[in-house]
């Protein structure tokens, strides 16, 4: 296996005008040269292997989109080096875009008024895809998902789910080495989410496409990613297998107890430190326990613990 993406000590700063509050403030702004530096990405190093699906997570404003924009060549890093498929994206945007696909959730990149199939044909011509490869890809799509109902529909008439589906298909059409998916399942219903996850998984399996996925939906992570990278305030705070994550927090259990007044109480317990039976005994001193459930900690809770606690690993 070789590397699809290599990032070395990458930082990105933005210059933002300091805006002042209210009427008086904006009169000041009219003349001020008062800028502040926002550190969107701070010294992030990251290597992604070919064929991997990684989950790139972090709270809102953590710097996920900025990272992706740098990897796609739209933004130039302030410091550090990025190589995508062996190219420096910002210097060689056109060549880089040859071999990547990008989906920004809720922001269609297709021709708004054209039926999907016409968008596909245009993309085929733009990326200079051989006719045979194009037909094979359509065949593959048909085997993975029911595309007939949307193929002849203009994008503007599609539901959000259909649009996202179309965008994902379009991103894979020229068989790129890497596909970036920025919150692809945002705002979708449960069944559409499931279909989209299956599709991504299927394409990754057949085409060995590297997928870099940002999401807030832990369902996406559980279904797709074996490895996750978490950044917060521009800094990388976690980068490892998802299994490792669960092992690391493996000693954690969620203990749910139904008390005498039928209310459920939830406690996250670190078994290496606290004994479950001890917690139950303590609780019983104040109230009778009618029912008990002991659950593995969910990915969602693990991630939340990492966001809250800063350095998790």
């Amino acid at each position: 296996m070789s590397e699809a993406v290599v990032m070395k000590n990458v930082s990105k700063q933005f210059k933002v005008l300091n805006r002042h509050e209210g009427l008086k403030g904006s009169i000041q702004d009219l003349f001020s040269r008062d800028y502040k530096i926002v550190q969107a990405v701070n010294d992030v190093s990251l290597t992604v292997m070919k064929g991997e699906i990684i989950g790139y997570l972090g709270p809102n404003g953590a710097g996920k989109s900025t990272t992706i924009k740098m990897m796609t060549g739209v933004l130039e890093p302030t410091e550090g080096e990025i190589l995508v498929n062996g190219l420096v994206p910002y210097k060689d945007r056109t060549a880089n875009s040859e071999n990547i696909g990008v989906v920004f959730g809720q922001r269609s990149q297709l021709w708004w008024n054209l039926p999907l199939i016409e968008s596909f044909k245009l993309l085929r011509d733009i990326y200079l895809v051989e006719e045979k490869d194009y037909q094979d890809m359509l065949e593959l799509y048909r085997s993975l998902v029911d595309i007939e109902p949307i193929l002849h529909k203009p994008v503007r008439q599609m539901s959000l789910g259909q649009r996202t589906l179309s965008d994902i298909l379009a991103a894979f059409l020229h068989n790129p080495g890497i596909v970036f998916l920025d919150e692809p399942t945002i705002g979708l219903d449960v069944s559409m989410k499931a279909r989209i996850r299956e599709l991504i998984l299927g394409l990754n399996e057949v085409k060995k496409t590297t997928v870099i996925l940002t999401t807030h939906d832990m369902g996406d992570v559980d279904a797709l990613c074996r490895r996750i990278v978490i950044i917060d305030e521009g800094k990388k705070i976690y980068d490892n297998d998802i299994d490792h994550l669960k092992n690391y927090f493996g000693s954690y259990r969620t203990l749910r107890m139904r008390l005498s007044d039928d209310s459920w109480v939830e406690k996250v317990i670190d078994e290496s430190k606290t004994d479950v039976m001890h917690v139950i005994a303590e609780t019983q001193k104040t109230s009778r326990i009618k029912d008990i459930r002991l659950e593995e900690i969910s990915t969602e809770e693990v991630i939340r613990k990492i966001y809250e606690g800063g350095q998790g690993a």
Binding site: R19, G22, L23, S26, I27, D29, L30
Partner: peptide, 9 residues
């Protein structure tokens, strides 16, 4: 509205 248009420096 005034605040907004002032920001158009």
């Amino acid at each position: 509205g005034i605040t907004e248009s002032l920001q158009f420096r």
